[in-house]
Nucleic acid binder design. Structure first.
Lengths: 238, 238
DNA sequence: TGAAATATTTAGGTATGCCTAAGTTCTGGC
DNA sequence: GCCAGAACTTAGGCATACCTAAATATTTCA
């Protein structure tokens, strides 16, 4: 409503929907920034592929273009689109950290709330919570928070984190991050004491269920993780 | 986007626009809950009267109806509409208080940010900030924060606050609240030391400018307030 | 009371962003 | 190289919520 007034405390262009597309492309494309297909975006955002095509044409036609789009061959973020995507990701992860640390949210609830609020906070709000939190580099799930200039904290530049499911029996690694998408999973992991920074040792993979037996920290007890769970945990081998 | 999914963390019906209308009717109608005309709503929301008519028809046709609407004679909140309006006002004022007290916002900036965020926070967020703030009864501008059940903290049930401009020369009164709408005004008042709880004594009204000469607290110096300023300050005579 | 001024409603249009259904283009296995 | 099925695009609609212009109702006041 209210005519052509800009909606978000005077921030850059783009509606809520635009933001969602840019973030989706950013998340699906990964660090390699590969071309992303309409169908992938559609299922990520839980909308139809037809809707995606239309929006991609608009994003590509925007001034400046937010994506580079070749019909039938996928999209990619442009310079401006990537900048905006990083802003949104920064908002999201700062809000998650804020909700957990300042408001005491359980970590399985922060994602949903941040998903909504990330579109509506002002630069001032972002700046205030970043200051209050001491300009954190990682959110509660272990994901890197982009800096204001769009740069990502490097992590240990040695090895890129890999899925827990990739470890060999006997290997030990530190949890780098866990997926924030599934609250049930997060509750389960919290109950097992698994969170970023914790050391895990893969004991064995059970032959029939395919589940992973893992030792958490220095505890005696083994913990059993299903395949999807083990794929949602990224670890860094020391 | 996302089909018919409810937008606000599973709260009651109503879009952002719906909320704005209900809040406007609530604010314009005042405690007496008098009938409110389309034009008043239109100018409050800075939209055209034609848009208002359309929306009022929808609000009246909703199940349950959110307003009681008689064509050409104005609207009024229904029971359900009033409940929702109070929820929004509670959100708004809690957010304002939170921004000021927890995030250190200057008081002239809290309104704009709250105006946006009030539509998007979940019940959980509301509950957490209310708890963090110790369930405050008044926001930084002195406005009463409705309780969860919709009741308003009574103020001193003795006299209803009146505009500072209604005082007679020589009278002393305590500032109950100031309007939160105009940031410039708020900055000016803050600079003069005028805020809720402060005691003011009206010295005189200047004959030509119409401005009010006021003594703030126990200070020696007089402070000059223009008519609109003096009308935006509500005071309670002791 | 009746006409002018004001308030309100109706009718028709715009933009966003989603949908379904019906093509079209691409790709991989034979 | 061809063709089936998957991926993608086009075309046509719908809902929301705003707009302008024109018509109508209400109020005011001489």
């Amino acid at each position: 409503m209210r005519d052509a007034k800009e909606p978000h405390g005077g921030r850059s262009p783009g509606s809520e929907a635009t933001d969602d597309y840019l973030k989706a492309i950013f998340e699906i494309g990964g660090r390699e920034e590969r071309m992303v297909g309409s169908k992938e975006i559609a299922s990520h955002l839980e909308i139809t592929a037809a809707s995606v095509t239309n929006m991609l044409q608009k994003l590509a036609a925007a001034q400046p273009p937010l994506v580079v789009y070749q019909k039938h061959h996928g999209v990619n973020l442009s310079r401006a689109g990537k900048k905006r995507a990083l802003e949104i990701v920064r908002h999201h992860r700062l809000i998650e950290t804020f909700l957990a640390q300042v408001l005491g949210y359980p970590w399985d609830e922060v994602h949903q709330e941040a998903e909504r609020l990330e579109h509506f906070i002002s630069e001032r709000f972002e700046e205030r919570i970043a200051a209050k939190l001491g300009h954190p580099e990682f959110d509660p799930h272990g994901h890197a928070i982009p800096a204001l200039d769009g740069s990502l904290p490097g992590g240990a530049p040695g090895r890129a984190p890999q899925a827990l499911s990739q470890l060999k029996p006997g290997q030990t690694a530190r949890v780098a991050s866990v997926s924030d998408k599934d609250p049930d999973m997060l509750r389960h992991l919290a109950a097992e004491g698994i969170r970023p920074g914790i050391r895990l040792t893969l004991s064995e993979r059970l032959p029939f269920s395919g589940s992973f037996q893992v030792r958490v920290g220095k505890s005696e007890k083994l913990c059993s993780l299903s395949e999807p769970l083990a794929s949602a945990i990224l670890v860094a081998t020391k």
